[in-house]
């Protein structure tokens, strides 16, 4: 997994609540058996005017000029600013894969759905919860200033705006440690093989029907 330390990035606002993972990456793209290449289809139904299917040449498709992602001022955005309950619905990890593949490294919202939030950390993507009023203020600031950027510092758990305003954010110590160092969860867990085996033996003895 790629590390996350400090990012200075352009911000793209997505001003709607309850953005679900079906919207982030529609189901037809889930037929892929690969982990990469989902970026061109992130927000496919909002982003293009035609219907997308796997295998299409996305560069030849008709873009929806009204969708925020297609506005030139947001090209190259690495920070997604969103509303409540971002990433709700399906557990598909294709959603963070698509956002990461597009180029996002940070998502800021008042709240996230649990499974999506969790999936982000497995993919070097940092989801940040800020108070609804702070998110609201950021939406206004982004709207007002083309080229609006934020600096996100994971070590200091701080976001700095161009005017110097700092927003502190919370992140669980363990997730922070993994993200800062780009650690592979499985490798970490396998350091505890002995403990897992001991637990398993005890668990099976207590509930023998589970070993079937």
């Amino acid at each position: 997994m790629q590390k996350f330390t400090v990012l200075d990035g352009l911000v793209m606002p997505l001003d709607r609540a309850n953005v679900d993972t079906d919207a982030i990456i529609p189901k037809q793209f889930l037929k892929s058996i690969k982990r990469s290449g989902f970026g061109p289809n992130a927000f496919d139904e909002w982003r293009y005017l035609d219907h997308g299917e796997p295998g299409m040449d996305n560069s030849k498709r008709i873009l929806n000029p009204d969708f925020v992602m297609n506005q030139p001022r947001y090209h190259g955005a690495q920070i997604l600013l969103a509303r409540e309950n971002f990433g709700c619905g399906s557990s598909r990890e294709h959603a963070p894969w698509a956002l990461e593949d597009y180029g996002f490294r940070v998502i800021i919202a008042p709240s996230f759905a649990d499974i999506f939030f969790n999936n982000c950390f497995k993919n070097g993507l940092l989801p940040i919860r800020l108070a609804a009023e702070q998110v609201d203020a950021l939406f206004k600031a982004v709207e007002a200033a083309p080229g609006y950027r934020l600096q996100v510092d994971l070590e200091r758990q701080s976001i700095t705006a161009p005017d110097g305003t700092a927003y502190k954010f919370e992140v669980e110590a363990f997730r922070k440690h993994c993200l800062l160092n780009g650690l592979d969860d499985i490798g970490l867990t396998l350091q505890h093989v002995g403990e897992i085996r001991a637990f398993e033996a005890k668990h099976r003895a207590a509930q023998p029907w589970l070993s079937a």
């Binding site: 990890e93 499974i115 969790n118 999936n119 969860d185 499985i186 867990t189 396998l190 897992i196 398993e200």
Partner: peptide, 16 residues
């Protein structure tokens, strides 16, 4: 769970 966690459970029988 997501796919990374599917792999995690396959390899370790556990989740963090």
């Amino acid at each position: 769970i997501g796919t990374s966690e599917v792999e995690h459970v396959m390899a370790t029988q556990c989740l963090l």
